[in-house]
Amino acid sequence: MANEEPQEKKKVEVDWSRRQFLIGTGALTVVGLGAMFLNEPVAAAVRSVFGQQPESGPITVLQGDYFYIPNYMTWRVGDQISMTIHNTSTTHFHEMQIGRGFNTMPTALQTIRTQFAEDFWKGVPVTITAAQGIDNFVTNEAKISSDVHPTPWLLTQPGNGGFSPTMKPGGQITLSFTVPNKPGIWHYACFVQGYMHWLAGMRGTINILPA
């Protein structure tokens, strides 16, 4: 019954360094905690140290559940931008509004933010240069023109809320425009599904530098 088998041929005692062990695991713990809790301050610090080049030309914004990549951009007034917004989610619709301040709606437990109060795109000429998998595109007060055949999803009449292209899962749209003379900090966000995407953190910031 107690049939002891030799477990291994030879057991050799070879020590290892306690210091390496502690420094290695300690450093990784710090990295892990930093990644979990300090990613935003660290990103802000890195930005303030190294600055950020304004983006121009073709740029891509990826949408996920529930985030944007990137969630921080720098633009400069007068630059020509061709922004592709691509929804990488396999399950969710996502939009992208840009603006400042909030329209709100009271509920039993808390006040909910429904969209931006000030629409960045007001009066801005925008050309749709490519589009695929669009659910709807509210243009509000932008001056829209299109290289693609936009019906039936293009909603140009007023009363549908702020400027917002809403992509189906996998959809994407390319918008070409010149950054208007509206320098300062602007925000972008997605408010779909009863405004829950914003609550879940689907937000970003654009720092527009003067020309």
């Binding site: 477990q7 291994e8 030879k10 057991k11 050799v12 005692e13 070879v14 290892w16 290695g24």
Partner: peptide, 19 residues
């Protein structure tokens, strides 16, 4: 052969296994 009450001690070090 596994019973070696006095293990051979080798001086050379190795990387900590966890690392």
């Amino acid at each position: 052969p596994d019973i070696s009450p006095v293990p051979q001690v080798v001086k050379s070090k190795r990387m900590p296994p966890v690392i």
